[in-house]
Protein backbone atom coordinates (compact mmCIF):
# COMPACT_ATOMS: atom_id res chain seq x y z
CA UNK A 1 0.00 0.00 0.00
CA UNK A 2 1.27 3.40 -0.97
CA UNK A 3 1.32 6.35 1.35
CA UNK A 4 -2.19 7.21 2.32
CA UNK A 5 -2.88 10.35 0.40
CA UNK A 6 -6.04 12.19 -0.13
CA UNK A 7 -7.18 12.25 -3.70
CA UNK A 8 -10.55 13.40 -4.83
CA UNK A 9 -12.05 9.95 -4.76
CA UNK A 10 -11.01 9.20 -1.21
CA UNK A 11 -12.19 12.56 -0.05
CA UNK A 12 -15.64 12.06 -1.44
CA UNK A 13 -15.79 8.59 0.07
CA UNK A 14 -14.77 9.90 3.47
CA UNK A 15 -17.20 12.76 3.33
CA UNK A 16 -20.01 10.58 2.11
CA UNK A 17 -19.34 7.98 4.76
CA UNK A 18 -19.75 10.58 7.45
CA UNK A 19 -22.76 12.15 5.82
CA UNK A 20 -24.51 8.80 5.48
CA UNK A 21 -23.97 8.05 9.16
CA UNK A 22 -25.21 11.52 9.96
CA UNK A 23 -28.36 11.27 7.88
CA UNK A 24 -29.18 7.82 9.22
CA UNK A 25 -28.88 8.81 12.81
CA UNK A 26 -30.19 12.32 12.59
CA UNK A 27 -33.78 11.35 11.95
CA UNK A 28 -33.85 9.26 15.07
CA UNK A 29 -32.54 11.92 17.35
CA UNK A 30 -33.99 15.12 15.98
CA UNK A 31 -37.16 14.86 18.04
CA UNK A 32 -35.05 14.38 21.11
CA UNK A 33 -35.14 17.95 22.33
CA UNK A 34 -38.85 18.48 21.68
CA UNK A 35 -41.13 19.41 24.56
CA UNK A 36 -43.84 17.12 25.87
CA UNK A 37 -47.37 18.51 25.81
CA UNK A 38 -49.37 18.16 28.98
CA UNK A 39 -52.84 16.69 28.89
CA UNK A 40 -55.05 19.54 30.12
CA UNK A 41 -57.86 17.34 31.44
CA UNK A 42 -55.72 14.75 33.13
CA UNK A 43 -56.75 13.47 36.52
CA UNK A 44 -54.88 13.55 39.78
CA UNK A 45 -55.15 12.92 43.49
CA UNK A 46 -54.75 15.39 46.32
CA UNK A 47 -53.22 13.83 49.43
CA UNK A 48 -53.85 15.71 52.64
CA UNK A 49 -51.26 14.59 55.17
CA UNK A 50 -53.25 16.24 58.01
CA UNK A 51 -56.11 13.82 57.46
CA UNK A 52 -54.25 10.51 57.13
CA UNK A 53 -54.43 8.32 60.25
CA UNK A 54 -52.24 5.46 58.96
CA UNK A 55 -54.96 2.81 58.74
CA UNK A 56 -53.20 1.20 55.77
CA UNK A 57 -56.48 0.40 54.05
CA UNK A 58 -55.12 2.01 50.86
CA UNK A 59 -52.26 -0.49 50.95
CA UNK A 60 -54.73 -3.34 51.30
CA UNK A 61 -56.98 -2.05 48.53
CA UNK A 62 -54.04 -1.62 46.17
CA UNK A 63 -52.81 -5.11 46.95
CA UNK A 64 -56.19 -6.59 46.07
CA UNK A 65 -56.87 -4.43 43.02
CA UNK A 66 -53.48 -5.14 41.45
CA UNK A 67 -53.42 -8.83 42.40
CA UNK A 68 -50.19 -8.51 44.34
CA UNK A 69 -48.99 -11.32 46.62
CA UNK A 70 -50.20 -11.48 50.19
CA UNK A 71 -47.83 -9.62 52.52
CA UNK A 72 -45.91 -11.25 55.37
CA UNK A 73 -47.72 -9.17 57.95
CA UNK A 74 -51.42 -8.39 57.47
CA UNK A 75 -52.44 -4.86 56.59
CA UNK A 76 -53.93 -4.26 60.03
CA UNK A 77 -50.58 -4.93 61.68
CA UNK A 78 -49.24 -1.49 62.54
CA UNK A 79 -45.86 -2.69 63.78
CA UNK A 80 -44.57 -2.27 60.23
CA UNK A 81 -44.42 1.47 60.89
CA UNK A 82 -41.61 0.93 63.38
CA UNK A 83 -39.66 -1.56 61.28
CA UNK A 84 -36.12 -0.65 60.33
CA UNK A 85 -33.96 -2.31 57.64
CA UNK A 86 -36.61 -4.14 55.70
CA UNK A 87 -34.12 -4.78 52.88
CA UNK A 88 -31.82 -7.17 54.64
CA UNK A 89 -29.18 -4.92 56.11
CA UNK A 90 -28.01 -3.16 52.98
CA UNK A 91 -31.02 -1.07 52.08
CA UNK A 92 -32.52 2.15 53.31
CA UNK A 93 -34.03 2.24 56.76
CA UNK A 94 -37.43 3.58 55.81
CA UNK A 95 -40.12 1.40 54.25
CA UNK A 96 -40.52 2.02 50.56
CA UNK A 97 -42.55 0.73 47.66
CA UNK A 98 -41.37 -2.62 46.35
CA UNK A 99 -42.34 -5.07 43.65
CA UNK A 100 -44.89 -6.46 46.12
CA UNK A 101 -46.53 -3.20 47.20
CA UNK A 102 -47.13 -0.32 44.85
CA UNK A 103 -48.09 1.96 47.69
CA UNK A 104 -47.09 2.20 51.31
CA UNK A 105 -47.77 4.54 54.22
CA UNK A 106 -44.97 5.67 56.53
CA UNK A 107 -45.22 7.11 60.01
CA UNK A 108 -43.32 10.24 61.12
CA UNK A 109 -42.99 11.52 64.64
CA UNK A 110 -42.43 15.21 64.16
CA UNK A 111 -41.21 17.27 67.14
CA UNK A 112 -43.84 19.81 68.15
CA UNK A 113 -46.72 17.80 66.76
CA UNK A 114 -48.59 15.84 69.43
CA UNK A 115 -49.59 12.96 67.16
CA UNK A 116 -47.69 11.01 64.51
CA UNK A 117 -48.07 12.04 60.87
CA UNK A 118 -48.56 9.60 58.02
CA UNK A 119 -47.57 9.94 54.44
CA UNK A 120 -48.62 7.75 51.54
CA UNK A 121 -46.07 6.91 48.84
CA UNK A 122 -46.86 5.67 45.32
CA UNK A 123 -46.04 6.76 41.79
CA UNK A 124 -46.70 10.48 41.48
CA UNK A 125 -47.56 10.20 37.77
CA UNK A 126 -45.50 13.17 36.59
CA UNK A 127 -46.72 15.37 33.79
CA UNK A 128 -43.37 14.89 32.03
CA UNK A 129 -42.27 11.58 33.47
CA UNK A 130 -38.53 11.01 33.72
CA UNK A 131 -39.05 7.26 33.37
CA UNK A 132 -40.80 7.86 30.08
CA UNK A 133 -38.24 10.25 28.66
CA UNK A 134 -35.31 8.05 29.69
CA UNK A 135 -36.73 4.83 28.23
CA UNK A 136 -35.04 3.77 25.01
CA UNK A 137 -37.75 1.31 24.00
CA UNK A 138 -40.79 3.48 24.76
CA UNK A 139 -42.08 1.12 27.39
CA UNK A 140 -43.76 3.96 29.27
CA UNK A 141 -46.65 6.13 28.22
CA UNK A 142 -48.59 8.94 29.82
CA UNK A 143 -52.27 8.39 29.16
CA UNK A 144 -54.61 11.33 28.55
CA UNK A 145 -56.32 10.40 31.83
CA UNK A 146 -53.05 11.11 33.63
CA UNK A 147 -51.60 7.70 34.41
CA UNK A 148 -48.00 6.74 33.64
CA UNK A 149 -48.26 3.14 32.47
CA UNK A 150 -45.64 0.58 31.55
CA UNK A 151 -45.54 -2.05 28.84
CA UNK A 152 -43.59 -5.13 29.95
CA UNK A 153 -43.58 -6.68 26.48
CA UNK A 154 -40.95 -4.30 25.09
CA UNK A 155 -38.91 -3.61 28.25
CA UNK A 156 -35.30 -4.72 28.01
CA UNK A 157 -34.61 -4.44 31.73
CA UNK A 158 -31.93 -1.73 31.58
CA UNK A 159 -33.42 0.01 34.65
CA UNK A 160 -32.58 3.53 33.46
CA UNK A 161 -36.12 4.54 34.47
CA UNK A 162 -35.19 3.68 38.04
CA UNK A 163 -32.12 5.90 37.76
CA UNK A 164 -34.18 8.70 36.25
CA UNK A 165 -37.23 8.69 38.53
CA UNK A 166 -36.65 11.49 41.05
CA UNK A 167 -39.04 9.78 43.49
CA UNK A 168 -37.40 6.29 43.39
CA UNK A 169 -40.72 4.78 42.33
CA UNK A 170 -40.12 2.06 39.70
CA UNK A 171 -38.99 -1.23 41.20
CA UNK A 172 -37.62 -4.25 39.39
CA UNK A 173 -38.33 -7.95 39.80
CA UNK A 174 -34.72 -8.91 40.47
CA UNK A 175 -35.80 -12.36 41.61
CA UNK A 176 -37.05 -13.41 38.20
CA UNK A 177 -34.60 -14.68 35.61
CA UNK A 178 -36.97 -15.20 32.70
CA UNK A 179 -39.75 -12.69 33.24
CA UNK A 180 -38.32 -9.75 35.12
CA UNK A 181 -40.19 -6.50 34.76
CA UNK A 182 -40.72 -3.08 36.28
CA UNK A 183 -43.37 -2.99 38.99
CA UNK A 184 -44.99 0.31 39.90
CA UNK A 185 -48.29 1.99 40.64
CA UNK A 186 -50.28 2.48 37.43
CA UNK A 187 -53.07 4.68 38.84
CA UNK A 188 -55.39 1.65 38.39
CA UNK A 189 -55.49 2.75 34.78
CA UNK A 190 -56.81 -0.41 33.15
CA UNK A 191 -59.35 -1.31 35.79
CA UNK A 192 -60.64 2.07 36.93
CA UNK A 193 -59.14 5.29 35.63
CA UNK A 194 -60.05 4.58 32.02
CA UNK A 195 -63.70 4.48 33.02
CA UNK A 196 -63.36 7.66 35.02
CA UNK A 197 -63.39 5.89 38.39
CA UNK A 198 -60.92 6.79 41.14
CA UNK A 199 -58.09 4.38 41.94
CA UNK A 200 -58.71 1.71 44.59
CA UNK A 201 -56.70 3.46 47.29
CA UNK A 202 -58.68 6.68 46.96
CA UNK A 203 -62.02 4.92 46.99
CA UNK A 204 -61.30 3.02 50.18
CA UNK A 205 -59.81 5.89 52.19
CA UNK A 206 -62.09 6.35 55.24
CA UNK A 207 -60.61 9.73 56.15
CA UNK A 208 -61.00 11.45 52.79
CA UNK A 209 -57.30 12.07 52.99
CA UNK A 210 -57.20 11.31 49.27
CA UNK A 211 -59.28 13.31 46.82
CA UNK A 212 -59.60 12.28 43.20
CA UNK A 213 -60.32 14.84 40.52
CA UNK A 214 -59.05 16.87 37.61
CA UNK A 215 -55.55 18.03 38.42
CA UNK A 216 -56.41 21.66 37.72
CA UNK A 217 -59.41 21.48 40.07
CA UNK A 218 -57.32 19.77 42.74
CA UNK A 219 -54.78 22.56 42.61
CA UNK A 220 -57.57 25.06 43.22
CA UNK A 221 -58.91 22.94 46.06
CA UNK A 222 -55.48 22.69 47.65
CA UNK A 223 -54.97 26.43 47.41
CA UNK A 224 -58.32 27.16 49.00
CA UNK A 225 -57.59 24.72 51.83
CA UNK A 226 -54.35 26.53 52.52
CA UNK A 227 -56.07 29.89 52.25
CA UNK A 228 -58.87 29.02 54.65
CA UNK A 229 -56.59 27.24 57.16
CA UNK A 230 -53.23 29.01 56.98
CA UNK A 231 -52.27 27.73 60.45
CA UNK A 232 -52.97 24.12 59.56
CA UNK A 233 -50.90 23.87 56.39
CA UNK A 234 -47.50 24.97 55.20
CA UNK A 235 -47.91 27.18 52.17
CA UNK A 236 -46.74 24.72 49.57
CA UNK A 237 -48.37 22.17 47.34
CA UNK A 238 -45.86 19.38 46.81
CA UNK A 239 -46.21 18.19 43.25
CA UNK A 240 -47.40 21.46 41.77
CA UNK A 241 -43.93 22.20 40.46
CA UNK A 242 -41.76 19.30 41.65
CA UNK A 243 -40.25 17.41 38.71
CA UNK A 244 -42.20 19.68 36.38
CA UNK A 245 -45.50 18.89 38.07
CA UNK A 246 -47.09 15.62 39.16
CA UNK A 247 -50.63 14.26 39.01
CA UNK A 248 -50.49 13.45 42.71
CA UNK A 249 -50.39 16.52 44.93
CA UNK A 250 -49.72 16.81 48.64
CA UNK A 251 -50.62 19.14 51.48
CA UNK A 252 -48.71 18.94 54.73
CA UNK A 253 -49.04 20.50 58.19
CA UNK A 254 -45.23 20.59 58.59
CA UNK A 255 -42.28 21.27 56.32
CA UNK A 256 -42.30 18.53 53.70
CA UNK A 257 -38.85 17.14 54.48
CA UNK A 258 -40.08 16.29 58.00
CA UNK A 259 -42.59 13.83 56.58
CA UNK A 260 -40.16 12.11 54.25
CA UNK A 261 -40.51 14.15 51.06
CA UNK A 262 -37.42 14.88 49.04
CA UNK A 263 -37.47 18.66 48.93
CA UNK A 264 -34.43 18.77 46.66
CA UNK A 265 -36.32 17.40 43.68
CA UNK A 266 -35.83 20.03 40.97
CA UNK A 267 -38.80 22.17 40.03
CA UNK A 268 -38.56 21.34 36.36
CA UNK A 269 -38.87 18.12 34.38
CA UNK A 270 -35.81 15.87 34.58
CA UNK A 271 -35.53 15.89 30.80
CA UNK A 272 -34.51 19.58 30.99
CA UNK A 273 -31.20 18.49 32.51
CA UNK A 274 -30.57 16.18 29.58
CA UNK A 275 -31.52 18.63 26.83
CA UNK A 276 -28.07 20.21 26.74
CA UNK A 277 -26.54 17.00 25.61
CA UNK A 278 -29.36 16.03 23.28
CA UNK A 279 -29.01 19.34 21.47
CA UNK A 280 -25.35 18.81 20.62
CA UNK A 281 -26.04 15.45 18.99
CA UNK A 282 -27.23 16.68 15.59
CA UNK A 283 -24.43 19.27 15.58
CA UNK A 284 -21.72 16.67 16.09
CA UNK A 285 -23.31 14.44 13.49
CA UNK A 286 -23.35 17.19 10.90
CA UNK A 287 -20.22 19.19 11.67
CA UNK A 288 -17.69 16.51 12.62
CA UNK A 289 -17.48 14.77 9.22
CA UNK A 290 -16.69 17.95 7.33
CA UNK A 291 -14.45 19.28 10.09
CA UNK A 292 -12.29 16.22 10.42
CA UNK A 293 -12.10 15.51 6.74
CA UNK A 294 -10.95 19.11 6.48
CA UNK A 295 -8.28 18.52 9.12
CA UNK A 296 -7.18 15.51 7.14
CA UNK A 297 -6.83 17.56 3.99
CA UNK A 298 -4.84 20.21 5.81
CA UNK A 299 -2.47 17.86 7.59
CA UNK A 300 -1.77 15.94 4.41
CA UNK A 301 -1.40 18.98 2.19
CA UNK A 302 2.22 18.31 1.33
CA UNK A 303 1.55 14.74 0.25
CA UNK A 304 -1.45 15.85 -1.68
CA UNK A 305 0.51 18.55 -3.47
CA UNK A 306 3.14 16.15 -4.70
CA UNK A 307 0.37 14.00 -6.06
CA UNK A 308 -1.37 16.93 -7.66
CA UNK A 309 -0.22 16.35 -11.19
CA UNK A 310 -1.06 12.71 -11.05
CA UNK A 311 -4.57 13.59 -9.94
CA UNK A 312 -5.01 16.03 -12.76
CA UNK A 313 -4.14 13.39 -15.27
CA UNK A 314 -6.73 11.07 -13.80
CA UNK A 315 -9.42 13.69 -14.16
Amino acid sequence: MKNKIINRRNFIKGGLGGAVVASQLKGKESQAAGAFDHYPDSMGVLVDVTRCVGCRSCEAACNQEQGLPEPEKPFNDYSVFDEVHPHGGHGREERRTTEYNYTIVNKYNVPGVDHPLFRKIQCNHCLEPACLTSCFVNAYSKTPEGAVVYDPTVCVGCRTCMIACPFYVPTFKYGSAFKPRIMKCVFCHETRLKEGRPPACVEICPQEALTFGKRTDLLEMAKSRIRSNPDKYVDHIYGEKEAGGTAWLYLSPVEFDKVGFDVHVPHEPVINFVRDFLSIVPMVLLIWPALFTGFHLLSNRKDAKSQHDEDNQEV
Binding site: E29, A32, S134, N138, V154
Partner: peptide, 10 residues
Protein backbone atom coordinates in the same frame (compact mmCIF):
# COMPACT_ATOMS: atom_id res chain seq x y z
CA UNK B 1 -38.85 -3.48 17.78
CA UNK B 2 -39.75 -0.46 19.86
CA UNK B 3 -37.79 2.73 19.38
CA UNK B 4 -37.44 5.40 22.02
CA UNK B 5 -35.33 7.87 20.06
CA UNK B 6 -35.53 10.69 22.60
CA UNK B 7 -33.61 8.73 25.23
CA UNK B 8 -29.88 9.06 25.83
CA UNK B 9 -29.56 5.31 26.13
CA UNK B 10 -30.97 5.05 22.64
Amino acid sequence: VSLGPAAVLF
